[in-house]
């Protein structure tokens, strides 16, 4: 465990908590893509099935359980408790265009052709693109609430920190996981445009709005 990995995990946790708190405090999930949140719940579910088969550390198990629980809580708030505030008309990304190719790819390119390993690979590939419905929604409405941009910032920062963690682990531990690294690079690249807007607008106190 190095500092980049730890701050990456904490950044991921911060993103998840920010989103939950935003929805809970405002009693509204306006501007949030339920589809992205469903995909993240699917990502955590398929990735953390090893909770049943192997124990790594108390930290590892607790974080996995927290991520899974929070992702289901978020989906519950969006699709059940605050369903009336869900902006379904703007959440129109076709998720089958992500899930089907990602599913196919995880069968073709994986470390080991076993059910758990294929599901783990599926989750890694799916996570890298799961934010697309949310970014699509923002590009459709042309704006995002500031708190939503903080959520996106921490979510993007998490995978960027993991990239540094992987460079670190490669040099000091000889650890290299091509699947995770390639997917992590793709995932981080998807946030670059957003990072630019976040730094040039949101951090200067302006609302994130896109030109019409």
């Amino acid at each position: 465990m190095n500092i980049f990995r730890l701050t990456g995990d904490l950044s991921h946790l911060a993103a998840i908590i920010i989103l939950l708190l935003k929805i809970w405090k405002t009693r509204s999930c306006a501007g949030i893509s339920g589809k992205s949140q469903l995909l993240f719940a699917l990502v955590f579910t398929t990735r953390y099935l090893d909770l049943f088969t192997s124990f790594i550390s108390l930290y590892n198990t607790s974080m996995k359980l927290i991520y899974v629980a929070c992702s289901y809580a978020t989906v519950y708030l969006i699709y059940m408790k605050f369903k009336a505030t869900y902006d379904g008309n703007h959440d129109t990304f076709r998720v089958e265009f992500l899930v089907v190719p990602v599913g196919g790819l995880s069968f073709l390119v994986n470390h080991d052709f076993s059910p758990l390993e294929i599901l783990w690979t599926f989750s890694i590939y799916l996570e890298s693109v799961a934010i697309l419905p949310q970014l699509f929604m923002i590009s459709k409405t042309g704006e995002a609430e500031t708190i939503t941009t903080h959520y996106l910032f921490f979510l993007g920062l998490y995978r960027a920190l993991y990239l540094i963690n992987w460079i670190w682990r490669y040099y000091f531990e000889g650890f290299f996981d091509l699947i995770a690294v390639v997917a992590g690079v793709v995932q981080t690249i998807l946030y670059c445009d957003f990072f630019y807007l976040y730094v040039t607008k949101v951090l200067k106190g302006k609302k994130l709005s896109l030109p019409a």
């Binding site: 995990d9 991921h12 090893d50 790594i56 991520y67 783990w120 993991y162 996981d177 995770a180």
Partner: peptide
């Protein structure tokens, strides 16, 4: 390669 090795990450 130990397939478990990447599972220490989240």
């Amino acid at each position: 390669e130990d397939p478990k090795i990447h599972k220490d990450e989240l």
